[in-house]
């Protein structure tokens, strides 16, 4: 995917979100750090352009909710910032790549610790399959069939200086 493809995918997702939720009235976006955040911000801007309604955006660090910390070194924790009450809202959770589903599981636990949203929907730029948990996305930019060992890397302007999605074969 190149920058234009990413832009079109996000524009379509913004429309789908509005269609499904009957407007932007009660929705709020929450991006999973790191690359879920710029995706949430872009979706919010697009929605605002379409509906002329401002949409709240939050950021969520899921480091404290991982299920694999026994096997990994201690990871730095970034501050979560959800500047609105999630209770009663339709929350659109965003991430760059959906893979095993474990990150989303952690994000759901983190969100539910903060409040009780009316619903949580999941938007992802790439769905690469290989789920290990019963989690499915509500909005997908692109389905990319992959082998388990391959790497999918999403590059975003805000973090990486360019918009691009690259699929890399396992090295060696």
């Amino acid at each position: 995917m190149d920058a234009e493809d990413v832009r079109r995918a996000l524009t379509r997702i913004a429309h789908e979100i509005l269609e499904r939720n009957h407007g932007a009235g009660n929705i709020a976006l929450v991006g999973i750090l790191t690359r879920g955040v710029p995706i949430a911000e872009r979706l919010a801007q697009t929605i605002q352009r379409i509906e002329s309604t401002p949409v709240a955006v939050g950021r969520l660090d899921i480091g404290l909710y991982r299920d694999d910390y026994a096997h990994r070194p201690t990871v730095p924790i970034a501050p979560s910032a959800i500047p609105f009450d999630v209770t009663g809202k339709q929350i659109i959770l965003t991430d760059d790549v959906l893979f095993t589903g474990r990150t989303v599981r952690a994000a759901l636990s983190a969100l539910l610790d903060i409040g009780r949203p009316a619903s949580i929907q999941l938007a992802t730029l790439i769905d690469r399959g290989h789920r290990e948990l019963p989690i499915r996305p509500d909005y997908v930019g692109k389905n990319v069939p992959t082998a388990r060992q391959e790497h999918v890397r999403v590059l975003l302007q805000e973090v990486d200086g360019e918009d691009r999605v690259v699929l890399r074969k396992p090295s060696g």
Binding site: Y69, A70, H71, R72, P73, T74
Partner: peptide, 10 residues
């Protein structure tokens, strides 16, 4: 106590 016990940060 978090992470892989005493491996610390990398």
């Amino acid at each position: 106590m978090g992470g892989g016990g005493m491996s610390g940060q990398d």
